[in-house]
């Protein structure tokens, strides 16, 4: 269980990026943080594995205050997937995936077996992809490697910062579905940041809507659809439906009289 309490993050003077955030995420939950740019969702994610430090408040994982933990050790047990993919360009696919186990001092055989297992998990043939460099892969394939790398050291928690944002819609759907499957199979706790409500509705157990560094509403997709707390949430929740209607109209134009 991840618990944030009264967390604030200031970047210098001015309005804080995150203000007085209190949030609980259950074990094995798939939580999606959603909101417009500057709403504080990415900052929240970075606070969770101490890539940045909060200005106030506490964050606890399984009851342990993370500010008391060694940040390097903490990061090695939390998977992190980046928006810009963030693979190491000079390392092969296998080497990229192996990085955290290597830092943890796993044996060579353990690492090789794990890399193979992960490549298969993200549907990349180990023989074809293992020795390639990231630049020799398509965007979708690269992000599959990104997911595999984050999972390498068997973390319980996955943090994903707009992981599928830069991909074309087809690949994006496919990758989202595949990852949700992995989440369920491995019993992970996932926190994913996005600004795409369709993605949020399709993947999330719980959606946390953010604006201006604070939480506007938090609940299951159904709860948000049934009882949006204000016009902002209603507008966001409605956007997939509006798009679907426009799409339907474009595909089946009303015949001219």
């Amino acid at each position: 269980m991840i618990r944030l309490e009264g967390v604030r993050k200031d970047y210098g003077a001015g309005t804080p990026a995150v203000r007085s955030l209190t949030l609980e995420i259950q074990e094995k939950e798939f939580a999606v943080l959603i909101g417009p740019s500057g709403s504080g969702k990415s900052t929240t994610l970075l606070l969770l594995n101490r890539l940045i430090e909060p200005s106030a408040g506490t964050i606890a994982i399984d009851g342990q205050n993370i500010s008391a933990l060694d940040p390097v050790a903490l990061r090695r047990r939390i998977g992190f997937v980046f928006q810009g993919i963030g693979l190491f360009p000079h390392l092969t696919v296998s080497e990229n995936i192996a990085i955290t186990p290597r830092l943890l001092g796993w044996s060579r055989q353990e690492i090789a077996a794990r890399v193979r297992e992960l490549l298969e998990l993200v549907h990349l043939a180990p023989e074809r992809y293992g020795e390639r460099l990231p630049k020799q892969l398509s965007g979708g394939e690269q992000q599959r490697v990104g997911v595999a790398r984050a999972l390498a050291a068997r973390p319980n928690i996955m943090l994903m910062d707009e992981p599928f944002g830069a991909l074309d819609p087809l690949v994006r759907d496919e990758l989202g579905t595949d990852y949700r499957d992995i989440h369920d199979r491995l019993g992970l706790t996932t926190i994913l940041v996005t600004h795409d409500m369709t993605e949020a509705l399709l993947l999330a157990d719980r959606i946390v809507v953010m604006r201006d560094g604070g939480i506007v509403q938090s609940g299951t997709p159904q709860q948000l659809i049934d009882a949006p707390s204000d016009d902002f949430v209603r507008h966001m929740i409605d956007s997939p439906r509006r798009r679907a209607q426009r799409l339907a109209a474009a595909l089946n134009p009303i015949p001219a009289p």
Partner: peptide, 24 residues
């Protein structure tokens, strides 16, 4: 982004230098 990724996978500053920054 590459340096942030190095931190996120759990590298110490020294490991980041030796494994990622200097080779690049």
């Amino acid at each position: 982004a590459v340096k942030t990724a190095a931190r996120a996978v759990g590298m110490t500053p020294r490991q980041s230098l030796l494994i990622v920054e200097l080779p690049l």
